[in-house]
Every structure is written in structure tokens, then in C-alpha cells.
Design a protein around this nucleic acid. Structure first.
Length: 308
DNA sequence: AAGACGAAAGTGGTTGA
DNA sequence: TCAACAACTTTCGTCTT
């Protein structure tokens, strides 16, 4: 743990946790990601576009994809030196074109200004670290430049960008949380999220259940022991291939529920379900699978006996 | 009385013809 | 484009603490 940060700026708690793998510092009391030092992956987007031809992987220049060259937005219309070489007739044409470009670019700028303000608002509501906010802004900018906002509300694209940025930085928020923060419907966010990641060819790793643990655990006020216990359970669950195809939040919730039970800090299924944004039924299903595959019964019985 | 459990029917999204 | 399908939710009745 670096010396500089000793207290959580959000809640003043001193229960900070330095996750070396992810290079971030998490407050165990309120779940705030105090600082993250993740390497910025922003320039690597195009490298993620797998396997079609070699020339598509060009690296230099502004962050735009090769298809943008067709769309003309990246090109300037007419410079001074061009103008002098034109006859009067054509001059008018070029003035018109320049006017067009001016309109387009100011429209984009105006949109960006509004959208980035909204983005900042939502990001601070969710207490997201600056790097995530920045990444979301970049994603949004690309979306605007490629005209992906057309036909969608600005807010939903902002939310989609944020959702994508969170997942890329492995501090995922659930769609419900994004929805609450932005006031956009859950499915709308999901739709635009899928749309923009596909169109921009952003590769997002499927989110890992353990990424949710610190936040959920702190909302439930669970001890650090229970938290690491749940992470361990998750590891085992992953080995037993219980995690593929399932919703990561459900698994995380079940692991937390079991861990709380084992540690004698029992929470009701309802409580866990609420913070994880899933239903009790889902927790029960995952919970049952966990008990079947991993032999946790003994541990739970142990705790029960102790109580008596 | 509250929580845990399970069955059944419904929802939204993915997949494969 | 449509139907089958899996994951998840909603709802509700029953059992346990």
C-alpha cells in the first residue's frame, strides 16, 4: 500500500485494500475505488479486431477506424490555397461545402459538450475513478464521430459507454446501477452497449464474478475474512466450471451468501439479492450448485455447532 | 412471523436452421 | 426470420427456525 493514501476520501475509513493484480485501491467500507493505476488500453482497440486482413491493424494517427475514411468526417473541405485556384462558380460550391462541414463539426462539438457533462454527472454518482470516466468519454466521442448516436438518445449512449468502460477496467457496475444513475431503462442501456461495442469493435472480456465482490461485500458490511472467503469459493467454482454461462452477479451473490454463512455473519438471501441486483431464487440455485460441487456442508455445520 | 425452499409459468436474449 | 433454448424473474405455496 503506497504511503500517500491512508484514508478513504469518500467515507474516511482506513480499511483500504490494495489489489496488486488490478493495480487499484479499494475502500472496504464503502466500495469506492480510490485510485486505479491501470495501464490505459485506449490505443489498443483496433488490435482487438481479430483476424481479417493485415492492413486493418494500422496503429498510427487519431483514434479512428479504417472505415471512417469513407465517411468523410475526418477530412477537411477546402483550404485557402485551394480557393485561389478555383473559378467563381466553383467557389460558391466550396463555400457551401465548408459551411456544411462547419455545421457538422459544431453539431458534434455541441453534442459532445452536453454529453460529457452528463457523463461526468453519472460517473460521479457511481463514484467511478477518473480513468474509467475518461475511457467512457473516449468511447462516446468515437460513437458520435461515427454517427452512432443518431436514432438513440444521447443519455443512453453515454450510459452504454460508461458500462463498457467499467467492464474494460474490471470495475463492473450492474446494468441496474447504471440505470439508476442515468435514469435510462436497463434494456435500453444493454442494447446500446452491445451496439456501440460491436460498431466500434471494442473487445470486452466477459466480466468476472470476483470483480463484484468488494463492492457487494462492503454494501453488506461483511468482514474482510468473509470477503476473501467468498473470493476463494469463486475460484473453486470456476475450477468446477460452475461459472460459465451464468450471470456473474448471481454467482458472486451466492458466493458471498455462503461465505457469510461460514463466517457466522449470516445475511438473508433477500439482503444479498438486493445488493447484487438478482432475485433470491437465483441465489438459491447458484447456492445449491455450490453446495453440490464444493463440499461446503461440513463448514456450515461446523459453524452451526459452534453457535449451539 | 420471517426466512428458506421449490415448482411453475413468464420474460428477454441468444442461437441455429 | 422464426422457433427452440437457457438463464433469470415473478409468483405462490409449503416447510423450517
Amino acid at each position: 500500500m503506497p504511503e500517500l493514501i491512508k484514508k478513504c476520501p469518500e467515507c474516511g475509513g482506513i480499511n483500504l485494500f490494495w489489489n496488486k493484480e488490478k493495480g487499484e485501491i479499494i475502500c472496504r467500507d464503502c466500495g469506492l475505488v480510490v485510485e486505479d493505476k491501470m495501464v490505459d488500453l485506449g490505443q489498443e482497440w483496433r488490435e482487438g479486431a481479430e483476424g481479417e486482413g493485415g492492413e486493418k491493424k494500422r496503429r498510427a494517427g487519431a483514434p479512428m477506424t479504417y472505415t471512417q475514411y469513407d465517411q468523410g468526417l475526418g477530412t477537411e473541405v477546402g483550404t485557402q490555397s485551394d480557393l485561389y485556384s478555383l473559378k467563381d462558380k466553383n467557389r460558391n460550391k466550396f463555400f457551401r461545402l465548408r459551411k456544411w462541414q462547419y455545421r457538422i463539426s459544431t453539431a458534434i462539438e455541441r453534442n459532445l459538450k452536453l454529453a460529457l457533462a452528463e457523463l461526468k454527472r453519472v460517473a460521479s454518482f457511481l463514484k467511478l475513478p477518473p480513468s474509467v470516466e475518461e475511457e467512457a468519454a473516449r468511447i462516446y466521442t468515437m460513437a458520435v464521430q461515427r454517427g452512432l448516436v443518431r436514432g438513440r438518445s444521447m443519455e443512453s449512449v453515454v450510459s452504454g459507454s460508461l458500462y463498457a468502460a467499467c467492464r474494460r477496467h474490471e470495475v463492473p457496475r450492474t446494468l441496474d446501477e447504471l440505470s439508476e444513475a442515468s435514469g435510462i431503462e436497463k434494456k435500453e442501456i444493454g442494447r446500446t452497449y452491445r451496439f456501440i461495442t460491436r460498431e466500434l469493435q471494442i473487445t470486452v472480456m466477459p466480466s468476472n464474478p470476483s470483480d463484484y465482490i468488494p463492492r457487494f461485500a462492503s454494501s453488506l458490511k461483511l468482514s474482510a475474512e468473509a470477503q476473501s472467503e467468498s473470493v476463494e469459493i469463486l475460484h473453486k467454482a470456476q475450477k468446477a466450471e460452475l461459472t460459465s454461462g451464468r450471470g456473474p452477479t448471481g454467482i458472486a451473490a451466492a458466493a458471498l451468501y455462503v461465505a457469510a454463512l461460514i463466517n457466522g455473519e449470516k445475511r438473508t438471501q433477500r439482503e444479498v439479492a438486493d445488493v447484487a441486483g438478482v432475485t433470491e431464487v437465483t441465489i438459491r440455485n447458484r447456492y445449491k450448485e455450490l453446495l453440490d460441487e464444493l463440499d461446503l456442508e461440513k463448514e456450515i455445520k461446523k459453524v452451526k455447532k459452534k453457535k449451539k
